[in-house]
Design a protein around this nucleic acid. Structure first.
Length: 188
DNA sequence: GCCAGGATGTTA
DNA sequence: AACATCCTGGCG
């Protein structure tokens, strides 16, 4: 297994989002296989935070590829993105679903004992399971010993429309492993 | 199984 | 005002 470094996130955000399916994410004793992501492009994508938020544009300017972009959605759930920044394009990859590996017991406790299939099947669910919150915004988690990612592959990756957005809703920038039992929603 | 509604905080 | 969500409760 090969550790992912910041240069993994110097491709186009859409390529990064596709490549992350099958990789594994490690976070302070818990880990999971990434089975669902979405790409957001800083330029030309009206659904990206950069479209309306100067703070998102400032975040890109002042952070490195691979840094965590974490924000509170609907006042309720933290969502975990990874900054993509390179000559090929800038933007974010939203991590939308994992298959639990290590630390399932701790994740279940944080999630209030929900059934296993709902533990990390959704962007808000997985941050709660892993204990990711606002304090992690801007963290370069790839460089910490207890956090990081390993390369992996998934031969059957599929693409679909992004979920829950109204702007640029026609772009097929959601990626996933359609055979996973841990998706936030099935692919059609 | 599907759908409606509400909780909740930050940004602009 | 909008929002990259999730849970519950009402149906059948």
């Amino acid at each position: 297994m090969e550790t992912i470094t910041a240069d993994f996130f110097t491709l186009d955000p859409v390529e990064c989002a596709r490549n992350l399916i099958g990789c594994s994410l490690f976070w302070k004793g818990c880990s999971g296989r990434i089975v669902e992501t979405e790409a957001y492009r800083a330029i030309g994508d009206d659904a990206c935070h950069t479209f309306l938020r100067p703070s998102a544009r400032e975040f890109i300017a002042s952070h490195k590829p691979g840094d965590a972009y974490v924000y509170l959605n609907y006042g309720v759930h933290w969502l975990f993105n990874i900054l993509v920044k390179g000559e090929a394009g800038e933007g974010f990859v939203l991590i939308r679903a994992l298959e639990p590996m290590e630390g399932a017991e701790e994740m279940s406790r944080r999630r209030g004992g929900v059934k296993a299939s709902l533990l990390t099947a959704g962007p808000g669910r997985l941050t709660q399971a892993l204990g990711i919150g606002g304090g992690d915004h801007g963290a370069s988690f790839l460089e910490l010993s207890e956090c990081g990612m390993l390369r992996g592959t998934c031969p059957g990756v599929v693409a679909g429309l992004r979920i829950g957005i109204t702007k640029a809703a026609d772009l097929p920038w959601r990626f996933g492993d359609p055979s996973s039992a841990c998706l936030s929603r099935p692919f059609k």
